[in-house]
Amino acid sequence: MIAFLRLLGQGVLEFLQGVGHVTLFLLEGLYLAFVPPFRFRRILREVFFIGFKSSVIILLTASFTGMVLGLQGYYTLKQYGSESALGSAVALSLIRELGPVLTALMVSGRAGSAITAEVGIMRITEQLDALDTMAVNPMQYVIMPKLLAGLISVPLLTAMFDVVGILGGYAVGVMILGVSSGAYFSGMVQSVVPLDINGGIVKSIVFGLLIILVACYKGYYTGRGAEGVSKATTETVVTSAVLVLAWDYILTSFFM
């Protein structure tokens, strides 16, 4: 029994230590955005990679998600004779939940794993050490631009996801299934309140930071060799997915 408690206590301590370590990593990364040299080009490069290059996949997933919502929503609402609420149902699901969550998961799958691999390879091939010896802070040169890019790109991608998803729902609900176009949009306008939109924005900011943070951290502290990097990459995908869903619950309970 005592042995068990000791093990439990040790586990909790290690967990808290880990959380503390990641938090310091995040704070250092963000702090370095405010001290020279500012590295605008590096940030732009990352926004291009994390944001712009994810846009096609976000367009695709968003349109299919919107179409499925249109289809499912239509048949469910029809049972209650309230097809006209389709617009608000689609918009609310997207803005509050699916937009931020799916965008985060897609970006994490596409860019997160690549970031871990990139940073991990820089670690094992001593490129991070080389930066250090050239008096360039690797946290500022490599990590900070990625964190900022996550912070900038993911909310924008989420907004795009929401808009495209709503249009996807429109395509199925209005153009195929015959819900009136006016009802689709006016229902939406009436039922979506600022709190929904703010909640969605906050979520997308938190998720954007979270997935890039996990990806950077796992790469920065990768194990040795190719095996270490491949393990870190897998961990990134799994950890970010779990954390995104967990934080989604936490944030949702705040914005209800």
Binding site: T125, E126, A130, A135
Partner: peptide, 19 residues
């Protein structure tokens, strides 16, 4: 430490070129 590192140049065994 950062200031100190400015005085070093190092050739890493694997080169450590930025790829």
């Amino acid at each position: 430490l950062q200031e100190f590192k400015k005085r070093f140049g190092i050739l890493f065994q694997g080169g450590a070129l930025f790829d």
